[in-house]
Write a protein that binds this DNA or RNA. Structure first.
Length: 294
DNA sequence: ACCTCGACCTGGGCGC
DNA sequence: TGCGCCCAGGTCGAGG
């Protein structure tokens, strides 16, 4: 599931290919993915525009196209890949042993899960594939984008100057929800999903089900200072949480080996050697160590 | 206003 | 072999 490091890796990949390319049309095969416009409006608006930049805020990928701004939320299984007709399609998919998710290897020909294709005038394209169809696309004018509900709802991105200990403390202090639930709340801090919240709480020595407001100053500071290095480390490993996850290049990355909590249920804790446990917090499976996390 | 929970989806894995 | 069930989880609306 794309969390911040995966989205950032995709962003870096697309940034190498998209800017400067002119969009000739958009093929919308699953219109429900477009949240604030219909297929014709989208296609009409983007046709003739050129990609100018690829940005990211939290888990939202932003495709700047001059006066237009496209937001892409990858949901659970969204894949956004650049396709060059001069490069051979692999059409191979692998299954992650960690998550069971199907991932494309390299560029692939559109299939039944390819729901949006943005065609460029030079024959290349941007393909959106999303097995579970949880993704969402939004179209805004460049002026509207910053004030969009999707961006306004987000708390600080951990890599932005807005991300401060004080803001995180405020976000955690105000709620009695489990700290895990609070950290998954994109209005508290954006970009974390189930995997990295488990990693951050493990590194911080905090049980996932602790009320967020019960964290001491030291614990809050531990969470605050662990988030960026954990995300950065994953980005350094090509932002890949899954051993078979491919970025926009179709290149392989590998961060799974560095995960210390997620997916390690029943296996020994990397710190104390005890058995890692699993519990449900806010409807989400959480893996944790009963010895190291309090 | 705050919070919890089910719905949305598909496909892989597992039990029978 | 195959069927049915359960699970994965980001986000959001409904309901408490």
């Amino acid at each position: 599931m794309p969390e911040l490091p995966e989205v950032e890796t995709i962003r870096r990949g697309l940034e190498k290919y998209l800017p400067g390319r002119k969009i000739s049309g958009a093929e919308i095969r699953l219109p429900k993915l477009l949240i604030n416009c219909n297929a014709d409006e989208f296609s009409d608006a983007v046709s003739g525009c050129s990609f100018t930049a690829v940005r990211r805020v939290g888990k939202i990928l932003i495709l700047d196209c001059g006066a237009l701004c496209i937001f892409v939320r990858l949901g659970m299984t969204g894949q956004l890949t650049f396709r060059n007709p001069e490069t051979e399609d692999s059409n191979k998919f692998s299954i992650s042993p960690l998550t069971g998710l199907q991932r494309a290897q390299g560029q692939f020909a559109p299939d039944k899960h390819t729901h949006i294709i943005m065609h460029n005038s030079d024959g290349t394209s941007l393909c959106y594939r999303d097995i579970r169809q949880f993704g969402r696309w939004y179209l805004y004018s460049a002026e509207e984008a910053a004030a969009s509900p999707e961006l306004k709802a987000l708390g600080p991105d951990p890599f932005s100057p807005d991300y401060t200990l004080e803001r995180l403390r405020t976000g955690l202090k105000k709620t009695r929800r489990a700290v895990k639930t609070a950290l998954l709340d994109q209005s508290v801090v954006c970009g974390l999903g189930n995997i990295y919240v488990d990693e951050v709480l493990f590194a911080s020595g905090i049980r996932p089900d602790r009320p967020a407001s019960s964290l001491s100053d030291d614990e809050t500071e531990a969470v605050f200072s662990n988030i960026v290095p954990i995300l950065q480390s994953s980005i350094d490993n090509r932002g890949t949480t899954f051993s078979d996850y491919r970025d926009a290049d179709g290149s392989k990355g590998d961060n799974a080996a560095s995960l210390k909590a997620y997916g390690r249920y029943g296996r020994p804790c990397t710190v104390c050697g005890g058995e890692m446990l699993r519990m449900s917090v806010g409807g989400r499976t959480s893996t944790w160590c009963p010895v190291c996390q309090h």
